[in-house]
Simulated assay, not measured.
Amino acid sequence: MNSSTPRYSRIAGTGSYLPPRRVTNDDLAAQLAQRGLETSDAWIVERTGIRARHFAEPEVAASDLALHASLAALQSAGCTAADIDLIIVATSTPDMVFPSTATILQNKLGVHGCPAFDVQAVCSGFVYALTVADSMIRTGAARKALVVGSEVFSRILDFNDRTTCVLFGDGAGAVVLEASNEPGLVASELHADGRHLDILCTPGHVSGGAILGDPLLKMDGPAVFKLAVGVLEDVARSVLAKAGREASDIDFLIPHQANIRIMQSTARKLKLSADKVIVTVDEHGNTSAASIPLALDSAVRSGRIRRGDTLMLEGVGGGFTWGAVLLDF
């Protein structure tokens, strides 16, 4: 690629990782019963589509999950960590207040010098991070980026609230995004509206060594559902319009894996058949910023998604944030 060649970005490799501890709905129901709370596999599956989730062990941090996913993505892309000149980690559950989880991951990868930073947009985080990396590659600030979504949401769940603790899990997904002569990421769009911050938040923080506020996740499920189904359709159509494409051009929709009903609703609004929607929420629950790259890697490794397929990635999360990316894989 010479200096006069238009610079684009494309996904060169994908990777993902789920911690070994798999917690089924029945496992969780038994745990909650000890607290006097009632739930069941049927109740959870009917409302969310989730059958299991993975929880990291106490000593395992977001950067540890990110490392596993990153190594898989690097291998898939046929490169090494030394080839990477940008690292972005999307997470709402960082290892520390600072430094960023991205710099901790950089150290664990054994490389140094390239920019590394976190993006905090909750469940939209991976779409945000991918868009930022694409922009930096297009401007020449990077040539090969490692973009990761990694979460340990089990650390911020309230296991006295059966409406939220059954929804989330831990995991990581990653892609290697590289400069290309041909467009890979075709169009993207990001949004946020802080007026809705109270419907999904973790309102605690640290001050003077003590926790102020409530450090556990709070969610108004009906309000989130209503807002999510509207903005996901709108942003998908807007990105298609930017790209000069139609919904019928989408080979696969990879939505944030939060709730099967939200995903199905979005697909219906776009007139996409169920076989065009990548669904992995049943096996890992809502892993926030990790869910889209987890689903992408699963579909790539199973052979369902192949080179040349057109993909729509979209996420919505606390903030309230949302966004979408259309790409030719």
Results as ranks from 00 to 15, higher is better:
36 G>I: 00
96 M>Y: 15
120 Q>C: 13
277 V>W: 04
103 T>C: 15
270 L>R: 01
15 G>I: 12
211 I>T: 15
31 Q>L: 14
122 V>Q: 03
70 S>G: 11
10 R>W: 09
122 V>L: 13
72 A>S: 13
164 T>Y: 02
90 A>M: 08
115 P>D: 05
95 D>N: 06
307 R>F: 15
300 V>A: 09
164 T>E: 00
272 L>T: 04
306 R>K: 12
188 S>N: 10
21 R>A: 14
104 I>F: 04
301 R>A: 09
293 P>R: 03
285 G>N: 01
222 P>S: 05
240 L>V: 10
143 R>F: 11
80 T>Q: 13
189 E>R: 12
215 P>R: 00
25 N>C: 10
112 H>I: 13
126 F>R: 01
218 K>L: 05
27 D>W: 01
106 Q>D: 11
19 P>G: 02
282 D>A: 15
215 P>T: 00
231 V>E: 12
28 L>S: 00
86 L>F: 15
40 S>C: 07
43 W>E: 12
53 R>C: 03
42 A>W: 07
88 I>N: 02
107 N>C: 13
319 G>H: 02
104 I>A: 05
183 P>W: 09
151 E>P: 05
28 L>M: 08
167 L>V: 08
158 D>M: 01
79 C>P: 05
275 D>V: 15
183 P>H: 02
14 T>V: 15
237 R>P: 09
165 C>Q: 03
117 F>D: 01
264 Q>A: 12
323 G>I: 06
108 K>V: 13
30 A>W: 04
88 I>M: 09
46 E>N: 14
202 T>R: 00
138 R>G: 05
60 V>F: 10
309 D>R: 05
167 L>E: 01
66 A>F: 11
207 S>I: 13
11 I>G: 09
121 A>M: 04
39 T>M: 01
225 F>E: 02
159 F>S: 00
285 G>D: 01
324 A>T: 06
62 A>G: 14
117 F>P: 03
102 A>V: 06
181 N>H: 15
153 F>V: 05
106 Q>T: 10
102 A>T: 06
155 R>L: 02
170 D>F: 11
191 H>W: 14
39 T>I: 04
183 P>D: 03
127 V>A: 02
261 R>H: 13
119 V>K: 00
146 L>F: 11
299 A>K: 01
326 L>I: 08
70 S>D: 04
136 M>S: 13
107 N>V: 11
296 L>Q: 02
133 A>I: 12
325 V>D: 04
99 P>M: 06
226 K>D: 09
250 I>K: 00
9 S>L: 09
107 N>L: 11
30 A>E: 10
